[in-house]
Design a protein around this nucleic acid. Structure first.
Lengths: 359, 359
DNA sequence: CTGTTAGCGCGTTCAC
DNA sequence: GTGAACGCGCTAACAG
């Protein structure tokens, strides 16, 4: 009955399917007990140099790698974090994701990603599903309603939010200071002399959108009128909403994000509207592309990778690794205005329609 | 010694950590055996309507979700695919990733992502690591040497490549017809009257780069000179290499990809070089941004999501799901030239230096 | 220091 | 149509 894996391999060699070696195969190969192999690999208990070498050789020879499912089953932890993002294609989230991944890697954690395709309704399920696989979940800019989030926080052991604080900050979160950033943009535009500006709204349910709205309300007044234009969070949304923004007669357009501004810029170009000559344009986030675009976008710098890293740290300190259960912290990341080429003083005349604007 | 999970739960209730319910908890709740619960959930064997309802109720009440680790252990499969990409921030890979994810989802498979940060040396380990967690791995545009790939293919049960065919097509792969695409670009430029063109090279080890080179060799001749300029695969690389491209005196610049062309465009603008008036520019891949840029980029359309989907299908048909082991297929995706605004006939005079070009 | 034993949560045999 | 028992790969408890 010692017909072991090595034998099988020979027989199935034609199929070239190398069956994964188990710890028992390694133990047999090294002529030790499975426990010794485990000890060498996990380093929990000392093992004599001789045996250790034999085990290491066997591991290399067989190409053995422990099965994480079995490890997870036993330890009750998977050594993985889940990350839920609205859209990996959005450079903003791609960066946040990288931040989490890099930080997690340092602690030897794997990252699992779920893309909800900007469908707020899918977030809850995605997080729940990820939580089956991972020890915790990082929720990026969730659009789900407050009470859904609260319920989720009870079902998912280690939940961390990015750019969303739950009711009373029950859920640990790292958020950008959108209010300050948006205020900076408003101040900048006002100083340039703009009095009528349009704002391209992001997803209504986004927490960050509401924070921006607070800043907008605070900044607006008789000498600084803000026209709200429904838009969205993608370049395509920006492209679509650009005409409406122009129609407000504003001399400056504030986009929800750089990614949105990208689409706006393209549409403006199609319409023959020059930025910043005819109209000023601002973004938010400072994605890498913004410096490559022409004109270079005036925006608010957010350290996106850092956001991801901070989220990881929140996860780690919430007891996911050691036992120090420190729930409910909310950390705020700064947002700094970056003035570039897409903003300038308004032209003498108000431009109610793009076509006439050019004429 | 029957101090079970339910007991523990009561004690740690203060921490508000809801421990995941097990199938046994559900069975107790529904007053049936664990086996019955399993049968209801997997639907493998018929169960009486009465019991089925009781089980479903219990599942909902407890919020029970089967532990995938345990399932994986038992079934010897995890119901997950790994995807290794050089850079998730690259819109190209983001799209391919989405393609895999969407297709996998339909078969109820989860997607695990590893980002190698464009470090070819990290690919091997990343794939190996992913293969511990997943039933197979999709390797996107791997830069690793041929023999490393061959070795990897033996260690990873279900390996599929995107944009890379291994020696003799041993590894199932879906590849873009780079050669045809590149040939199309060359023909287009030639027809416009360009005789001296620069090519911004991608990563030397990329299979797709070698395919492009074949097309370039075939197209080049006394009346179509191609100047090779080392570059890379990111926008930043393109930005850096733009000057060198101009210095060749070419009237058209072919970028490795749209993503690279983006950086080139930005640099050209800084230099006051107008596209396509002073110099024509082409990309490859047709990422969404390319239509938003000004000028809109002439490029080669590649259905990126489809690439991902086809990779998934290759994985699925390689016996990862059923047993139909159909190894070594290589499928080729078409590449279609999209003529937009960044290419035009060359200006009358050759432009050896950007500054003089404008004057 | 090392080997043996038990069991993590689940699905799938077997008996009934 | 249902329940009891076994084992997936691994490691933490015990024995020696």
């Amino acid at each position: 009955m010692w017909c072991n894996a090595a034998m099988d391999r020979v027989r199935t060699d034609a199929g070239a399917r190398p069956p994964r070696a188990t710890i028992i195969d390694v133990a047999r190969e090294a002529a030790v007990s499975p426990a010794t192999v485990s000890r060498v690999l996990t380093g929990t208990k000392p093992v004599s140099a001789d045996l250790e070498q034999r085990v290491r050789d066997a591991v290399n020879r067989l190409g053995y790698r422990p099965n994480p499912a079995a490890q997870g089953l036993l330890r009750g932890a998977t050594h993985a974090v889940g990350v839920v993002v609205p859209d990996v294609g959005n450079p903003y989230f791609a960066e946040v994701l990288k931040g989490v991944t890099n930080a997690a890697e340092e602690s030897d954690f794997r990252t699992l990603v779920a893309d909800t395709g900007e469908k707020g309704g899918a977030e809850h399920d995605a997080a729940l599903e990820l939580s089956r696989w991972a020890d915790g979940v990082v929720l990026c800019s969730p659009r789900m309603p407050q009470r859904e989030l609260a319920k989720l926080a009870q079902a998912v052991p280690h939940l961390v939010c990015v750019n969303r604080v739950g009711r009373g900050g029950q859920v640990p979160a790292v958020v950008v200071d959108f209010e300050a950033g948006m205020a900076g943009i408003c101040r900048h535009l006002r100083e340039l002399g703009h009095r009528r500006v349009a704002y391209l709204r992001g997803p209504a349910r986004a927490w960050s959108e509401r924070a921006r709205q607070r800043a907008l309300r605070a900044a607006s007044g008789p000498d600084f009128e803000v026209f709200q234009v429904p838009c969205g969070s993608s370049s395509v949304d920006g492209h679509r909403a650009a005409d409406a923004a122009l129609a407000t007669g504003a001399t400056a357009v504030m986009a929800f994000s750089d990614y949105v501004a990208l689409g706006v810029l393209a549409r403006f170009d199609e319409l023959g509207v020059s930025v910043p000559r005819d109209v000023s344009l601002t973004g938010f986030d400072d994605i890498a592309l913004s410096e490559l675009l022409r004109p270079r976008l005036t925006t608010v710098r957010v350290s996106k990778q850092d956001l991801g890293r901070r989220a990881w740290e929140l996860f780690a300190s919430s007891g996911a690794i050691d036992g120090a259960d420190e729930t409910g912290r909310v950390v705020t990341a700064s947002a700094e205005l970056i003035t570039r080429d897409s903003t300038a003083p308004p032209a003498g005349a108000i431009t109610p329609l793009p076509k006439t604007a050019k004429a």
